[in-house]
Amino acid sequence: MTMLLDVTDLRKTFPARTGLFGNVIDRVHAVDGISFSIAEGRTLGLVGESGCGKSTVGRAILRLIEPSSGAIRFQGNDITKLPPAELRALRRRMQIVFQDPYSSLNPRKRAGDIVAEPLMVHGIAKAAERREIVAALFAKVGLQPRQMGLFPHQFSGGQRQRISIARALSLGPRFIVADEPVSALDVSVQAQVINLLMDLQAQEGLSYLFISHNLAVVEHVSHDVAVMYLGRIVEHTDKASIFARPLHPYTQALMAAVPVPDPSIRRDKKHVMGDVPSPINRPPGCHFHPRCPLAQPRCRTEEPVLREVQPGHRVACHLV
């Protein structure tokens, strides 16, 4: 299988505190050495709770924020050191869809212009032709081409998300980072957007990095799943294995905590205690040990390495 995207040891730190002269005193390790790859036409679901660094990963891949170190190979070329001109060309091949359907569209621009903007930036087609392309994109994402003249506030949340998707598709990308694309939507509308994303994948062979905190949604859309905790991947494998037999205690805890919409299933109520620690001040050893019901003395001092415990199933835990 050819890999479209190959991320190796990606790191991103942010200054948490700076001194009087702008010298950095403390750093937040938002993304702390993660590696994964995504093949053509596949979806990797990236799961984790707030502050685990999953959104930072998505933005670093698109170089919307500069990674601190690591390699990001897209179609074989490392894009972390691309000069601006080549980066611009790369923008045509990878795109992003955001969570918030309100802040992701400029309220002062018409929907059609929002979708046409990437075409203009890259000087694709003349005005009349552009209109046709945009109309076709509208139809593709399930909007009426006659809605092109409306402003974002005249659309519902789900429709706005469709506009965002149309904008991302306008340059004909191969890869899309979908950062919590349905989290802000109502349940009935969520299904519409998920179906749209999956249809587009089937039609155009797109690859997705699907970032979400919702395990049920991730299970539905992904081929592979990676679970993040405090900047690291703790478990990574194909969807069937991870949902059938999660190995990392955190993945297990996460799954146990998801409320299941079926009152006939009464699960045992053993929920992990405590809060997610701050990424500035992470516990030593395995970052999960203070909340882990199985923690051993070793977990407090020694950092577990993400290693392959079964073919294609990587886990970072001393006990597996």
Binding site: R59, L62, Q95, S103, L105, N106, H122
Partner: peptide
């Protein structure tokens, strides 16, 4: 939307 504009180059 500013980020999206950067993302399209």
């Amino acid at each position: 939307y500013v980020e999206a504009a950067r993302a399209v180059g």
